[in-house]
Amino acid sequence: MICLGIESTAHTFSCAIVQKNKKGGKILSDVRKIYRPPEGQGIHPREASRHHIENSSDVLLECLKKANLKISDIDIISYAAGPGLGPCLRVAGVIARTVSSYYKIPIYPVNHAIGHIELGKLLTGAKDPLVLLVSGGHTMLAALKQKKWRIFGETLDTTLGQLLDQFGRSLGFASPCGKKIEDLALESENYVSLPYVVKGNDVSFSGLLSAAKKISSNQKDACYSLQETAFAMIGEATERALSFTEKKELLIVGGVSANKRLSEILKKICQRQKCKFFVSPIEYAGDCGSQIAWTGLLEATAKKGAKLDETFVRQSWRLDTVEIDY
């Protein structure tokens, strides 16, 4: 079975084609165009959606071309229906419905966060992991229990990706700022004390962000201290969740999973907790059509496509409300 997946929840517009067979899944193509706001500025939803609209048909054509397929070869279509930015979400929704209606192809609305998790599982081979999802849109620990991804800790305010981006933008960096902050952090070992807030098993980054901005006259020390504090908070919540759930695998997915220092901290935690550590490959760590296509294929094993008039986009769609039937 072959699925065309469309992703447009935030910065990235992406189309991907994934094939599912008895052995698993194979990514046939994954094409992306990323909206880059001006330096020092964050994402503007309308501007991002305009970018996606302008690039949509070219990305779709290139995706089909790279997979060496025609639209008639596609068995199902899936799109990221949320969570995300309204104007951006509607782009993928409209394209998916148009193609579905015109070519009579079954359609599947997919939860973007679950897409990250399922693609991470496919690409790493993790079977039943505790998942740490860290990106611009999410910071949460989740594990599958009784047909739903249950949350074992999350951010109470800013996500880890937003923390890094907002701090980076305050220094005039262009989004996404994670790599630049990681590089600067490597040049310092001078830790400046910053607010460390873990409540229960949830984290809060807003105070940390304000405090880090106040010490940003020395960029290297500030980046180092910010990373060490934020990642230690995430590490504490992760280790407690591992201990509580007794999972024997930890999988990290989302754009921030590309950070090597975060992986280093989590690896040590896994050694202590005697569990396997999996990281989503960098190429597929961030938002991409493959995560949506693969989740669509999994959904198609358990249910029929949605009726067109019931296909929705939902800006706030928590993954713990989604029933997992596959």
């Binding site: 409209v94 419905r97 209606s101 067109l308 008039d309 019931e310 296909t311």
Partner: peptide, 8 residues
Amino acid sequence: AVQSALEP
């Protein structure tokens, strides 16, 4: 196709 894409 366009109508059913926009109406939801």
